[in-house]
Nucleic acid binder design. Structure first.
Length: 509
RNA sequence: GCCCCCAUCGUCUAGUGGCCUAGGACACCACCCUUUCAAGGUGGCGGCACGGGUUCGAAUCCCGUUGGGGGUGCCA
């Protein structure tokens, strides 16, 4: 049946369904999955989820995930894109070095087999040639009041010739697709036109190439996105016409945007690489992607969906995948990412965070403040802006956020308190410029103020103006730790600037 | 148009006829804690699209309607 025996991978089984008996370690149970992206300039997050599902299933059965590049459309694909696909897969933990991984294989390299299969189909009468051009097909359809191709050349006995397409003779009856995710899906064959197998220039189309490759590679399970479901009866008929038993199908729901439309390159952030560049952790992305359409068992009892890959890999079942489209929610992704950042070992976190810094920023200085950033960080790309006030050139003051300034300076005591704090800080011994001392000094100073008559002033309010004066903002890392890192000189000069500014604005009022 | 799929809080989901007064997570709100923010704690808001069946009993099964999505290429 196959042009060449299967000679790659750890599996020696035929493309027919494996025996249902045997233990998990029995090679007969090892199943072969495939991931077949079309080469584009980026790696789609939806594709990443599909790949992950396949990966979990392949490893569960001690089987294989085959990467196949669908590059038959020569007009649009570039060799360098392949590296991007491999990199992206590696990033989400699907490493090409893993024994369960195989590939990449190139569909274009198998053109001979595609043609051979087409020839067999033609010889057996399962396919026939047709000389109608696309325009002619359309004109006929219009004339007949139907859509698509009407089978015009079915019995004309045309020989192969340039410009003629090979079409599949769709048999009467019904095609039932047995899908692991959604059960039986029935298609009336009369609604399926005699589709093209070979183009007028003799090249095979995706439908044929896909089936031939899957068969040759011994693929036992085809798990892909729902958009392929309408193709499936056609492919199933092809498997059958070729005398092969069909693989186990599984169509997982598509990922959609807030408009409930399939994620599109134009409108949505769909490139996996872009999330990586934004400082989303691979583990967080993997975890989040897996929860789209599937809930790890035990998540409810644990009160958390945060779960490591090994656990998810072991628990994943296609039968449990939801059937409706899932919205790719960046907010939830970021929440997962935050949780993962928080859990990182300190040294690993520091290395990753430091990588985000501009080249001329002092790494040692950053290391002092970094621990205070860890549990606040949403994504690593936010690192520089969170601590930029510590890395300004000498004499340059941070830009002051208007709203923060207004709020911090509104109490009458704000100016006087900061003025007194400035003098006290100036007198602090060199060895006392530490977060603890800076804090207790503040507490001493503020004790002679009241928030309102009769109402005690709390540290949270008292520190507000100082924070804005020194960092320019009302939010950020803990204040006294920041001051310690900043140093006395810069702290005092920034406070002086703020006091001057306040003086000016008050005189204008 | 035709074919196919889908329908539980804003979002992701649990739920496979009685355990459902529908559970969890993210988001949001409030309070507590607190050195701002974050984290943590407590609480709150919020959903079975609609209409018919079947059944003693329906979020769960069936039919229909409505709504959404996918496909309908000599793209993949």
């Amino acid at each position: 049946m196959r042009a060449e025996p299967v000679a790659f991978g750890v599996v020696t089984s035929s493309p027919t369904a494996p025996s249902p008996s045997g233990s998990a370690s029995d090679p007969a149970d090892a199943r072969r999955f495939r991931f077949a992206p079309s080469p584009t300039g980026f790696f789609h997050v939806g594709g990443a989820r599909t790949a992950l599902f396949n990966w979990a299933l392949a490893r569960q059965s001690a089987g294989t995930l085959v990467l196949r590049i669908e590059d038959t459309d020569e007009a649009r694909n570039r060799p360098e894109w392949i590296d991007g696909i491999i990199d992206a897969l590696t990033w989400i933990g699907i490493s090409s070095d893993d024994p369960h991984f195989e590939g990449p294989h190139f569909q274009s390299a198998n053109a001979g087999a595609h043609l051979g299969a087409a020839q067999r189909l033609y010889e057996s009468g399962a396919a026939y040639y047709c000389d109608l051009s696309p325009d002619e097909v359309q004109a006929r359809a219009k004339e007949l009041g139907i859509t698509g191709y009407d089978g015009y050349s079915r019995d004309r006995g045309l020989e192969p010739a340039p410009g003629r397409v090979l079409r599949f003779r769709v048999p009467d009856g019904e095609t039932v697709v047995d899908d692991a995710v959604r059960g039986e899906v029935r298609f009336d064959n009369s609604t399926i036109e005699d589709f093209v197998l070979l183009r007028g220039n003799g090249t095979p189309v995706f439908l044929l190439a896909n089936v031939v490759d899957d068969a040759e590679m011994g693929i036992t399970d085809v798990v892909r996105a729902e958009e392929h479901l309408p193709n499936t009866p056609k492919q199933q008929m092809l498997w059958e016409a070729l005398g092969l038993s069909t693989p186990r199908w599984g169509h997982v729901p598509v990922l959609v945007n807030e408009q409930r439309k399939k994620l599109s390159k134009r409108r949505d952030q769909v490139a996996l690489e872009s999330y990586r560049d934004d400082g989303i952790l691979a583990d967080a992305m993997v975890n989040y992607l897996m929860t789209l359409g599937w809930t790890p068992p035990g998540a409810e009892e644990a009160g958390s969906e945060i779960m490591g890959w090994p656990e998810m890999e072991a628990a994943f079942r296609l039968e449990d995948v939801n059937t409706s489209p899932a919205f790719f929610d960046v907010k939830k992704l970021v929440a997962f990412n935050k949780a993962y950042i928080r859990e990182m070992p300190a040294d690993e976190y520091l290395a990753r965070a430091s990588a985000e810094l501009p080249a001329d920023w002092d790494r040692e200085r950053f290391a002092q403040i970094a621990p205070h950033l860890q549990e606040r960080l949403e994504r690593f790309s936010d690192v520089p802006e969170s601590v930029d006030f510590l890395f300004l050139p000498d004499g340059v003051d941070p830009a002051i956020d208007e709203a923060s300034w207004r709020k911090a300076t509104s109490p009458e005591w704000a100016g006087p308190l900061l003025g007194q704090l400035r003098e006290t800080y100036a007198d602090l011994a060199d060895g006392a410029w530490t977060a603890d001392d800076l804090k207790s000094t503040m507490e001493r100073v503020m004790s002679s103020y009241e928030e309102k008559p009769g109402k005690e002033l709390k540290l949270g309010k008292a520190q507000a103006f100082c924070r804005v004066a020194v960092t320019g903002r009302s939010v950020g890392p803990p204040l006294f730790e920041s001051l310690e890192v900043l140093g006395r000189e810069a702290t005092l000069s920034r406070i002086d600037r703020a006091l001057t500014l306040l003086d000016h604005s008050e005189r204008q009022d």
